[in-house]
Amino acid sequence: MNTVILRTAARYLAPTLIILSLWLLWRGHNAPGGGFIGGLVAGSAVVLHAIAFGPVAARRALRGSPRAWMAIGMALALGAALLGFVFGETLLDAAWVDVPGVGPLGTPLIFDVGVFAVVVGAVSGFTLALWPEGAEPGAEEA
């Protein structure tokens, strides 16, 4: 594979995928999409980045370890779940605020963002873990 073309493509494709993933996350409550799908798309962007520029660059682009992404994602999900106690009666009891012009915002959205973060962390975690040792791009491989 021609690394130059790949790198050029990745340079533009990866940010596009990130934006797409955020859009999928945002609209997921009302149209196909959501935290999982968004997270998978964003994770794919990381994978692409890794293929083009190598795992070190991908890790840098991730702005934090996969472990941190996952921990924070789980913390967000747990926090959203526990907010049910604060605003409602039980675990995961959804609380909503109607924001004019934007629509209803609520704890399920926080929850979905947590899911998104965990999926991003997991996909990049798998990729970085499985990356063969010493196989940096540029070094010729299949």
């Binding site: 999982f36 999926v119 997991a122 798998f126 873990a129 499985l130």
Partner: peptide, 17 residues
């Protein structure tokens, strides 16, 4: 199924490692 797919993906990722 969506939940199951994601769980399956996670477990497969670990199994690959």
């Amino acid at each position: 199924i969506l939940t199951a797919i994601v769980i399956g993906f996670g477990v497969l990722g670990f199994a690959l490692a």
